[in-house]
Structures are given as structure tokens and as C-alpha cells.
Amino acid sequence: MNQLLDVKDLSIAFETNEGLLKAVSNVSFQLHENAILGIVGESGCGKSITAMSLINLLPSNAIVSSNQMLFNGMDLRSIDKNKLYEIRGKDIAIIFQEPMTSLNPLMKVGQQITEMIRLHENSTLKEAKQKTQWMMKKVGLSNVKKLYHSYTHELSGGMLQRVMIAMAMICQPKILIADEPTTALDVTIQAQILELMKQLNKENHTSIIFISHDLGVIKEMCTEVMVMYLGYCVEKADTSVLLKHPAHPYTYGLLQSIPNPKKGKSRLYAIPGRILKLSERPKGCPFCTRCKRATEKCRTQLPELQEISTNHFVRCFYPLDHPQN
């Protein structure tokens, strides 16, 4: 499989009044062609800004540094502005959590998609319109001619998210960044949208970076998962491996704290303590304040990301047992 995206040692910090706030530290990941990479974590773990930094969509007080950020052999760190605008939308598209606020309420939805085509492709208005309607049909919208001339407030959340996806997919991007695309939707609608994204992934060979806090959704969508905690990548593996044999105590805790029908009504496992603020990041392992297995070493030294089995990385001094070891 071809490597589409190769990011090494990505760090992001924000300049604030109280000084430099480190939000993401030394995150590395690769995205292969046709793959779906999941980034999972709780609020404030840096999962969204990691993805946003790829196409430079961060606020101006952010400082991004990395050893490598290759997209299709092109260095994303050093490209000029015009090139970046070209990549945005055409090669790397993005859909957000809130479809309601991500679309312009004063513009017809069809027009918004058509504009996307006209920005990136040399096509006449008529061609672009036709392509828009074709794409709208493809993402499962019916009565396309009428919808083309609707405004956002006339559409439901599920339909808007379909419009967002149509807009993102219209230029057949190589990478689609989906930032919690179904969190604001109902479960039956969520199932429809997930199905649609999988289908697009198969048919158009678009790679997806799928950001979510819901391990259930991740399990259904992704081939590979990266678990983030307080700006660090704490575990990275194939989805099935990670869910079956979590090696990092945090991943394990996350999985255990989801109600399991098989275990019945016994008490849930709850990770003790609270999620720290970014400004309170401990010196050692980010998870040491909530980890039962933490030792003095964990509190003072930051563990490195180590490979414990093929393609299974974990950032922990004492990873949980793995059957292959």
C-alpha cells in the first residue's frame, strides 16, 4: 500500500498570555491509500488540532513544528499559500461536527457545492451544476433538483451532513478529514452516514482520517486507530488488535468504562481522577495521575512510543500483557 501521508514528530503549542501551552507533542502517524485512520480521545486531547494542522487551519497563535509532514511526496510544511489553498478542498477535504454552522445560511446549498467545483476545476457553470446534482444523488439525497435551491435551515441535520460530505467529496480528494461527523446526529442517522462514508471510501479510494470520541463508531469505521491523551499518542494499532488487546492502561480503562451487555449490571470500571487541563500536564507519563500502575519512574520520566508487536505501538513503561509476547 502506498503511503499518502507521513507525519513525524508533530508538535503544536499555543502562545497565550500565560506563556506557551503545549497541546500536542511528538505525534507521528502514517495514512495509507484507501485506509481509514481513527483518532480517538476525550475532550482536550488534541485530536482535532492534530488533523487541522495538516492543512494549516489552526488559529494564528498556534506554533506547529514537525520533523516531517509529507503528503504524496510533497512537504506540507514548506509549501506556499497558493499551493495550500489548492490542496485544501481539492486534495484534502474536511467535514465538521456541526453541519448547521459549517454551511453558509444565506447561500443555497447547491450553490455552495458548485462553488467548490468552480474554485478547483476549470468547468462551466452548467457542468458544475450537473456534477453537483450527480454528487448530491450519490450521497443519498433525493429530490436533488429542489434541494439544490434550498437553504440550510430547510434541511435536517442528517441531510446537511450529507450535503457537507457531498461538498467535501466533490473534487474527489485523496484525504477526507472527518471531525466527529456524527456526534451531533441521531443513531439511526449516524448509521446511515457511517455507511455512506464507508461506501465512498471503497468506491473513490479516498483515505479518511476519522476523529471521534466513540470507540464503537471507531470500531465500525477504522482500519487503524491512534489513541490520544493530553496531546500524546499513547497507543496506536490496528483496530481489531487495539480493541481486543489494549496495551495502554488508558485504552484499557476507556474500553472497560463502556457498559457491556455481556457483563450485565455489575459496576462499571471508572478511570479514577479527572482529565487534566493542558496547563497541568505532568512531567512524566501524561496518564500517571490516573493510572493504578504508575510508579515513581512514570511520574518523572516520559515513556517513549515503543513497538510491542507488529504495528502495535504503545507509550508506557509497563504495558498490559499481550498474547504475542
Binding site: V187, T188, Q192, G216, V217, E220
Partner: peptide, 25 residues
């Protein structure tokens, strides 16, 4: 039925037979 099948579940190993609903409320 469709509600239960639509919920992504971490613990279910087999791929569920989805009886997903079409359309919107």
C-alpha cells in the same frame, strides 16, 4: 429493532445485520 442495530457496539464481534431505517424523522 433498527435502533438497536444502529448502535455501534465495541463488544459485538460479528458484523451485525443492519436493519437501518431510511429517511428522516
Amino acid at each position: 429493532r433498527s435502533l438497536i442495530s444502529a448502535v455501534p457496539n465495541v463488544y459485538d464481534d460479528k458484523y451485525k445485520n443492519k436493519t437501518s431505517l431510511k429517511g428522516e424523522v
